[in-house]
């Protein structure tokens, strides 16, 4: 298996310019009112000691991605680099990914799903996704996840001098996120779930219920198909006995 790739967003460096969003819209040829990158802002404290927390609402590239598991058309797939790709031309817009995502990231609009496509062509050419190459504040990095984690640890250690709750988000969540976040405070402050999870019923539905249902239907077809000739002959015989 090839190495895990991912993003690192240092939320403490983000200047809220939203250039990443615009670059993403241009790269993916989206209209102005469709975006794969949204933001959440949260102020804590009271004047004059106010802290502004910002985070992106964008695909977290979960290692154990429930959207990939639930996608009925194969539009959502895991790349070898473990990024979660979306092929809009295969998407039916069913919105199952939007329903199952623990971060509520995908949006089902215009009969398709909208979520980060991880700039597949660029990444496979060895380039950075456009949001990363555009970021003027160096708040975004792209690369091998292990390397990103190392640099995040250093940065968090420095931040903790000023923000004792500073931490890395995404180390373990959902099997490890491909979108690592450096936070200055607890995840809840940013509106991030502390322990996101995919409901266990998802695996039950896809791995047990659906195959069992299909097997039962198959058994019914076999039983009736095999008995049909005998049963109709028996019936004709009874009618002719009259």
């Amino acid at each position: 298996m090839t190495k895990q790739f991912g993003f690192l967003m240092d939320t403490s460096l983000c200047v809220e310019c939203q250039a990443c969003r615009v670059a993403c819209q241009m790269q993916n040829q989206l209209p102005h009112n469709r975006t794969l990158i949204r933001f959440r802002f949260q102020e804590t404290g009271s004047y004059p000691a106010v802290t502004n927390h910002i985070t992106r609402i964008t695909c977290m590239h979960c290692q154990l991605a429930p959207c990939v598991k639930i996608c009925p058309t194969g539009a959502l797939v895991k790349g070898e680099n473990t990024l979660t790709y979306l092929a809009p031309e295969r998407c039916s817009g069913c919105g199952y990914c939007a329903q199952i995502c623990p971060f509520k990231v995908p949006q089902a609009l215009d009969n398709r799903s909208y979520k980060c496509m991880a700039c597949r062509e660029l990444v496979e050419e060895g380039k950075e996704p456009v949001c990363v190459s555009t970021c003027i504040a160096n708040a975004l990095k792209f690369g091998e996840r292990a390397e990103l984690l190392k640099s995040a640890e250093k940065r968090v250690a420095a931040l903790q001098k000023t923000f004792p709750n500073a931490q890395i988000y995404g180390r373990e969540q959902m099997g490890g996120l491909g979108m690592l976040l450096i936070l200055r405070d607890d995840p809840a402050v940013y509106g991030l779930p502390v322990a996101p999870r995919a409901a266990g019923e998802l695996a039950f539905w896809k791995d047990s219920l659906q195959p069992t249902g299909f097997k039962l239907v198959g058994a019914a077809l076999l039983a009736t198909g095999a008995s049909y000739a005998i049963a109709s002959r028996n019936h004709r015989r009874e009618l002719s006995e009259e």
């Binding site: 919105g95 199952y96 939007a98 329903q99 199952i100 623990p102 949006q107 089902a108 995919a198 409901a199 019923e201 998802l202 039950f204 539905w205 219920l209 659906q210 249902g213 039962l216 239907v217």
Partner: peptide
Amino acid sequence: GKGNLSQNEFLGMVMLHDIAMY
């Protein structure tokens, strides 16, 4: 409810829908 259901509500509904279909 499309887009506005919780994970569990959604999964419960699709599974019942499936079972009824089978």
